[in-house]
């Protein structure tokens, strides 16, 4: 009678031993910081000789009354709402195009993928040149048509949009690769069968291709959501959140609060908001979208 339970226990020990390295890393670098962040958000910021003291919900009250926070949050939501669907849609279009028969296909694929290889900081610097008023690329082209110069990054109505364009330009090529791989794994018999049935190209896309791409769409959109809150490097280079926070995003504001103002408690509070937001989005995506995804 003792033997099976001994084996069970040994397996149990082995299992845990195998899991330990990954668990230690996960706890040390993900869970522990997340928990301390939430913990810190209930304390004041320690400064020099002044220790941190428990302040309850005061940081959260500050947050609700902070106009910059609300502006940054709305910027972030707009940023996500525009860059995610546009970059995913564009990626799908580009993938469909370069998947077809087309001369110079390899070159076009490379051209679409090139922005992904560049570091975001370099991309931002290239776009800084495009956007420079007067002698930047865009204004030189506009000038050839007699149009006046535009201060893309220096105008609060245009700054956020200009920053979004850079993100879309950078992201679409990356997502295209996933769609391209998925498209090439769709069996050609399906297309032949559809052709015999007399289905139009649009019907084929809507009824066959698109549903088969759903797992990729889910994967890509989860990535797009994470990236839209995570990638802020170009904001540092291009606008530093300006003018008057018009192009500031949540993560950029967290960085400013933590490493410029050294208000670590308030930065923790802002991070909690980001954590909650991202968790809600991720859960929503997995539970809602997962039902509609068709895995083969």
């Amino acid at each position: 009678m003792t033997r099976p339970s001994l084996t069970l226990r040994r397996e149990w020990v082995h299992g845990w031993l195998l899991l330990t390295p990954a668990l230690v890393l996960l706890f040390a670098f993900t869970h522990l910081p997340a928990v301390t962040t939430i913990w810190d958000s209930f304390f004041s910021t320690p400064r020099g000789r002044r220790e941190a003291k428990f302040v309850g919900l005061r940081n959260y009250e500050t947050l609700l009354a902070d106009d910059t926070f609300w502006q940054v949050l709305s910027n972030s939501l707009w940023y996500a709402a525009v860059t995610i669907p546009v970059s995913v849609g564009l990626a799908l279009l580009m993938a469909l195009w370069v998947d077809g028969r087309l001369s110079g296909r390899g070159f076009v694929r490379l051209a679409y993928f090139a922005p992904t290889v560049l570091p975001l900081i370099a991309v931002a610097n290239i776009w800084m040149f495009f956007y420079t008023p007067g002698f930047g690329l865009i204004d030189q082209i506009r000038g050839a048509f007699g149009l006046p110069e535009v201060n893309w990054l220096g105008n609060p109505d245009l700054a956020l949009g200009s920053v979004m364009v850079v993100a879309i330009w950078k992201e679409a090529g990356f997502f295209m690769i996933f769609y391209l791989a998925a498209l090439q794994s769709i069996p050609p018999q399906l297309r032949e069968a559809a052709a015999i049935e007399g289905a139009s190209r649009w019907t084929f896309f809507r009824r066959v291709t698109f549903p088969l791409l759903m797992p990729t769409t889910l994967f890509v959109s989860v990535n797009a959501v994470i990236n839209s809150f995570r990638m802020v490097d170009h904001v540092f280079v291009m606008t530093e959140g300006g003018p008057d926070n018009a192009s500031s995003l949540l993560l950029f504001y967290i960085y400013e609060t933590a490493f410029k103002y050294w208000d670590t408690a308030y930065a923790s509070t802002l991070t909690v908001v980001l954590l909650v937001l991202l968790s809600a989005l991720a859960l929503g995506q997995f539970f809602l979208l997962d039902k509609r995804v068709h895995y083969r």
């Binding site: 800084m128 007067g134 002698f135 201060n151 220096g154």
Partner: peptide
Amino acid sequence: MQPGIIEWGSTPKAFFEGQ
């Protein structure tokens, strides 16, 4: 003067370009 926010980094360049 050009309206809107004016970039620090490109200011010397704008000067060299006669802008």
